Simulated assay, not measured.
Amino acid sequence: MPSARDLVYGELRRRLMAGAFLPGEKLREERIAKELDVSRTPVRQAIERLEADGLVKRDGRRGTVVLGWLDRDIDEAFALRLLLEPYAAGVAAQRATPAEIDELEAINRGMKAAAESDDADRVDRVQKLNNRFHHALLAAAQSARVRSLVESLLDLPIIIGSFYFYSHEDMLRSVEHHRDIIAALRAGDAAHAETAMRFHLSATHLLFRGQRKGKAPARG
């Protein structure tokens, strides 16, 4: 069963990513604790994790404030990924070794197992494995230049946590997208790899935008 800290962290992370708090807005522990019906301790612990994630920042005078991630920032990050990652996938289809493709498949199997589990940390595990998958694909492209351009986009705090929006079905759909990409790599089909990656990222962006539009919890 998830701890109170994990439940508070998951809820606050979803709200932050959905744009429920304005950039620069102060997170008030007492109000959050009352709203979520918990003590202030798990709220404080959750906020510490959010600070480590790069989503909030402690300000000595103001307390904890929300860092700014506007819709345009997210759209730009996905636009850049859509330009670069399909190309990386196409190059990987031409250069990846069998061992590198096997690693991608193993990561994706782990992601599926995590998504299907009832573990309290399953979302954390899924998002970490997803991040590993995309980094491993970049490595398989065997291009230091492409890798340096894309890695910073993969590790943006707002991008890493996208799985806090995902339903069980969304997670499994992402696994299937990865399978399509892996199949293209095994076939050495650069065009298919590019198309599969572009579809995967477009679907992710669409889901992200849907959660940011009109579905954020109201602030009172």
Rank of each mutant, 00 (worst) to 15 (best):
K26Y: 03
V38T: 15
A33R: 06
A20D: 03
V8K: 06
V8Y: 09
P23H: 04
R179W: 00
A141K: 02
R49Q: 11
A113T: 10
E169C: 06
G24V: 05
A77F: 12
E11Q: 11
K112C: 06
E11N: 12
D119K: 14
S167E: 08
R13H: 11
K57H: 11
D37L: 14
M197A: 13
S167W: 03
T204V: 07
F165Y: 08
L149W: 04
H200Y: 07
K213C: 06
I159L: 12
D59P: 01
V91M: 06
A203S: 12
L55N: 01
R81L: 15
R14E: 09
V66Y: 10
F163Y: 10
G188E: 04
V146F: 06
D53V: 14
F208C: 08
T195K: 09
A106T: 15
S148M: 05
S117V: 05
Q142D: 14
F199G: 00
K128Y: 06
H134L: 14
D37A: 12
I47C: 10
R209P: 00
V175G: 13
H192S: 14
A114W: 01
K34R: 15
L104P: 00
E105P: 02
A46G: 07
E105T: 01
E35P: 00
E169D: 14
R186F: 00
A187V: 00
L154S: 01
D118I: 01
A106E: 10
A190S: 12
I160R: 14
D170P: 06
A93S: 05
H192E: 12
F163I: 04
V146L: 15
R147F: 02
H134W: 12
H200V: 13
K215P: 02
I107T: 04
G210H: 01
R179S: 07
I160Q: 10
F165H: 00
S143C: 07
R145L: 11
S162W: 07
G210P: 01
Y9S: 09
V146A: 09
F163A: 09
E76C: 01
A183F: 00
D73T: 14
R81S: 12
D37Q: 11
Q127G: 04
V38E: 12
K26M: 14
R15M: 14
E85Y: 10
L22P: 03
A96L: 13
P42S: 11
K215M: 15
R145C: 01
K26R: 15
E29N: 11
P86T: 07
E76A: 12
F133P: 02
Q142R: 15
Y9C: 09
D75W: 02
G54R: 00
W69P: 03
L83T: 12
H200A: 13
F163D: 04
L138A: 07
L27C: 08
A203H: 05
R40F: 04
K57F: 11
A187L: 00
A184F: 07
H177V: 04
A4G: 06
V126E: 01
L138D: 01
E169H: 10
E48F: 08
A106P: 03
Y87A: 00
A20L: 13
A139V: 15
A77T: 12
L80T: 13
V43W: 05
I160A: 10
S162C: 11
